[in-house]
Amino acid sequence: MRHSDDNANPGRRQFLECMAWAGAGTLWLMHGGVLRAQPLSAGGGQAAADATFAFVQVSDSHIGFHKPPNEDVASTLRASLAKVKAQPVTPDFLLHTGDLTHLSRPEEFDTLAGIMQESQVPKTFYVPGEHDVIGDNGAEFFRRFGEKQQSGGWYSFDHRGVHFVGLINVLNLKAGGLGSLGADQLAWLKKDLAPLSAETPLVVFAHMPLWPLYPPWGWGTDDSAEAVSNLKRFGSVSVLNGHIHQIQQKVEGNITFYTARSTAYPQPAPGVGPAPGPMKDVASDTLHTYLGIREVRHVQGRQALAITDEQLS
């Protein structure tokens, strides 16, 4: 049995505790901010059959990292993308929620782009992590992977009735601070959401958590509260983040926040040990249980998103 969060956190929501993981993962069904879980079997059963479309989140591939516990992050990314290809319902697109690379080096971006291409996965939307913008404020990242809608790099799009928003919270970071969206992006977000009806399902994605998950380790965004204030009137909001290399989640009204696993290496649970960073002592034969992808299915007419986290095993 596994807990719903990767790292057991006693006292968290009782109904999330002790959910059985069967095989590759758990199917998450979200109904107006309340989660329901069922074992992932035969492609998710009726929920998958009802889905109007699906998409997959991958995160934190850290191409260029080459130390314990994972000296071959290219292979684990390839294996993750093979899982995408093996899904019974072909996802319409992928979201990569940042830290494509470890050090923003051109050859690391080359490798990432090559793996995505050779894996023949559908169109991928990217947002950068702090590891992708080192030294050039993301110029190379945006040139290669940006949607080029706004000069700041953020963007939105509509897909089959769901509004998707990609935010950038890893630039212009201030000494002593956390992730940052900035006044320009917040103004744009407000304007972008203004014409939408409250019934429109929203999916907002960014690299760093958009809630104060664990600020002592930098796991949060300084001005996330203002962004979230613009989301509160909507009936179904899912916020998808990466950065912390493990699954954590939080429900706040109709907004559900999720962080994703990495395809490269796990990090410790919040506050466990002296600092974040790779968990080096993970045995190689159990590493894959810490890595994975996330599939999201949209069920039309139910304002529901079914979220499935799948281990790389």
Partner: peptide
């Protein structure tokens, strides 16, 4: 001279 890590800005 105050300084920080621009990748992990909570480090000062």
């Amino acid at each position: 001279y105050a300084y920080y890590c621009s990748i992990h800005p909570m480090m000062v």
